[in-house]
């Protein structure tokens, strides 16, 4: 159960300068969250479900060409455009800074996906199907979503609930970066990321790495920014700019 004593505000920092586009987060998320198999046919229909995915943008022409990677996941906006349009309150903002989706309220209007500026909501156009043996892998802590339901990144809320239960409920300690990591309570994408691009934690805890990174990088000339900041959605996922050694000198061949 939600522990009322501790007031968390979960969030993430994504350092794009570290991201290599390796897809470890993508597959980790699919393993943890019982995401239906994205078959070839589903990709052709443009209906693949990837709660976190890596976008690749091109800049320039050969030979001065750059590919830039950016992991995109639900931004867990404070002013989430998806929330007010849901007629059945299936998506709402919880008291821990997360935008959550209640699957058994969802009636599949898809208004939320329409209104999401980040295109991170995914609709189950089909009943998910697994061969009988592969079902043995399914995570018992996560509901399998049926056809007609909207789904999206949950910050692996099942792990956070467990962390609250174990760390705060049983041990009576406060959740810190360390005990989240030690207990395998961090979101699956964060645990997997080989380059430590993704950092997860509690923005309400001034000691947490995310709070300190926010403080360090959200200064004049710092690397911190938010996606489509002008929209005023106030995301709880913040990004750190890619560093380009040619940024000031243009297309000079050497640093």
């Amino acid at each position: 159960m939600v522990n009322e004593r501790v007031n968390h505000k979960w969030g993430m920092v994504v350092d794009i300068d570290r991201c290599t586009g390796c897809q470890a987060c993508v597959v980790a998320c699919q393993a943890e969250n019982n995401i239906p198999l994205n078959t070839e046919a589903i990709f052709r229909q443009r209906r693949a479900i990837e709660w976190i995915h890596v976008e690749r943008y091109w800049e320039g022409e050969f030979p001065d060409v750059k590919a830039r990677f950016i992991p995109i996941l639900c931004q867990h906006c404070e002013n989430a455009p998806c929330e007010p349009v849901c007629p059945v309150y299936a998506t709402y903002h919880n008291n821990q800074g997360m935008n959550v989706q209640v699957y058994n309220r969802c009636v599949g209007t898809r208004y939320c996906a329409n209104n999401c500026s980040y295109q991170v909501r995914f609709f189950n156009y089909w009943e998910p199907v697994w061969p009988e043996t592969l079902k043995n892998q399914l995570n018992p802590d996560v509901t399998v979503r049926s056809r007609g339901i909207m789904e999206k990144c949950s910050f692996d809320i099942q792990r956070l609930r467990k962390a609250e239960h174990v760390i705060e409920g049983q041990r009576g300690e406060r959740i810190t970066d360390e005990n989240l990591r030690e207990g395998n309570f961090l979101p699956a994408c964060v645990q997997a990321c080989p380059t430590t691009t993704l950092v997860f934690g509690d923005f309400n805890d001034p000691e947490s790495q995310v709070s300190q990174m926010k403080e360090e990088h959200f200064v004049e000339g710092g690397r911190g920014y938010k996606l489509l900041e002008d929209l005023g959605t106030e995301p709880n996922v913040i990004y750190l700019k890619k560093v380009d050694i040619h940024a000031k000198t243009g297309v000079e061949t050497h640093a």
């Binding site: 794009i16 976008e55 943008y57 830039r68 950016i70 690397r223 920014y225 996606l227 489509l228 900041e229 002008d230 929209l231 990004y239 700019k241 890619k242 560093v243 380009d244 050694i245 940024a247 000031k248």
Partner: peptide, 13 residues
Amino acid sequence: EAEEGRIIKIASP
């Protein structure tokens, strides 16, 4: 169209 709010921002070292 997102030219205004460029998704991947660049900083110099």
